[in-house]
Structures are given as structure tokens and as C-alpha cells.
Amino acid sequence: MSWVVDNQLTRFQKFCVNVIKCGPIPRHIAIIMDGNRRYAIRNKMGKTEGHTKGFERLAECLLWCRELGVKEVTVYAFSIENFNRTIEEVDTLMSLAKEKFERVFEEKDKIMMEGIKIRVIGNLSLVPEDIRILLAKSVLLTKDNDKSILNIAFSYTARDEIVHSMKTVVEGLESKKIKPADVDADLISYCMYSNQSPDPDILIRTSGEVRLSDFLLWQISQHTQICFTSVLWPDFSIWHLLGCIFKYQRAFPGLKKYADECQSNRKKLNDRITSFLGDIEKKRMEQMEIYAKT
């Protein structure tokens, strides 16, 4: 199963996509793809097969988002806490990830033609080396694409991200690149792994869980529309996605007003901060180059 699937929407589905596109379309959707294992148990298959089904669904979901004009999607692929699962399962997940990221290079032409940019957010120092190389190479390969963006949270937790960001700020202060007066909540936002993305407009969590489980806490605590649905991820269909977007459109006027209010309270960036943020981005890309070479 590949990253870029062919368009298999029926005429009616296409019609509905076009209808929904008449309302405000979210720029960024975040997804917690939960329920692969429960799906496997329910359908009497192995865990691995459940995870594979989950990946197939993701590829389709990305297609739907492209059709809808949603520019950016962030998915929770692997949490730092997932390293606590049994060794067999971690191994299975890692080999699945390896297989999928190897496919990125097999399908290079398709991915580049569609203009898909892959970004990885998370603590890559914890990831096994062979996968880290693949992740870094995928990021570097697609870094100049800009038609649609896929952020993969791998070896990620939000608390780890917040701590990382605070550490970045402290380092900036110590090296005198920024001043104590520059430190505020916004500066911490700008130092997140996800600093290149706008805050998600919708968060979808499947399989009936009603908590955030350490995913993008900082980014979705502001104006994101939360969508908890009971469907298991491999069963997630375009109708569920359209439903979530419709709910977002219903809530849009109120959320937009609140988001604008928050935006207007933000200070304008001074040159010192802008150049500091430029440095961070440069350093991050250099780190990716190092990861890709080792």
C-alpha cells in the first residue's frame, strides 16, 4: 500500500466534497489514529495487520484532505510512551515504519509530483538509527515541496516538546541571542517542533477515547475544534471526515472570533527574535543532514 493512492471517490462522494468546500475549509487537521489493535481483535486478525490497515486508511485520508483543499495534516504515529509496549510490538511498529519510509523513496516521483512535504516532529534522538536515517532523508527530500504538508509525530509527546522549547529559549538567553524581556508564551510557541505550522483547526481522535494523550497540547489548547468519534481508525471513512469538517464549519464564526482576538494580543516580532528563530530553523535542518548521513 502506498503513500499516494489513486482517487477512488464515487461521483456522489465527489459531489459532497464539492458541497462542503462551499464553507470555510480548515487549513490544518490533526489526527490521533486510535483503534488499530481493537480493529484487529474485532476482525480476528494479527496486530500487524491492524496497523497496516491503519496506514492504508491514512493514505486515503490524506487524499481526501487534498481533495478538500486541507493543506496540512498532522498525525500521531508513535508516542514516546509507546516505547513501553512489549518488545515484539515495538519491533513490529518499527519495522512497519521502516517499510513505509522506504516506500517514500520508491514512490519519490509521485510524492514530488503531488508536491507533498513531509515533516517529522518529535524527539528523534530516541529513534533507532536505521529509521532515523530514513526519517531525516524523507524530510530533506521533500523540504522544498509546498502543495500539501504531512507532519508525522514520531517519538513525540507534547510535554517533551514543551520542555524542548523551554530549553531552546534558555539556550538563546545564555548565548545572549535574545533578552529576558523577549521571553513570553508566544516565544515558547515559536520554538516548538511544530513552529512552521499554524495551530490545527480540527483535532480528530478516533475509537471513542476522550483525552488528548500528550498530543499537541500546546497547539490545540487555543481555538481548535475537538472531534472525538467512536469509530475505530481503520473504519474511518470520508463521511466521518466530512462530518467533522461540517461541525467545524458550524462552530467557525465563534472560533474565528476567539482566534482573531488571541492573534491581536500578540506582540510584533522584533529583529532579535526573528533572527533567533531563523537560527533555530537552520540548526534543525543541519541536524537533519547529520541524521541522514550517519
Binding site: 510535554r159 497540547l217 489548547s221 487555543q222
Partner: peptide
Amino acid sequence: DYCFYNYPPWQMRLT
């Protein structure tokens, strides 16, 4: 609407 309106992010990890 299901929205958190800037609720303290650090604290809502497992809520």
C-alpha cells in the same frame, strides 16, 4: 462547541 479556549496545556495531558 468543543474547544479549550487556552486552557493550561501542560495540565490536560490525561484529562
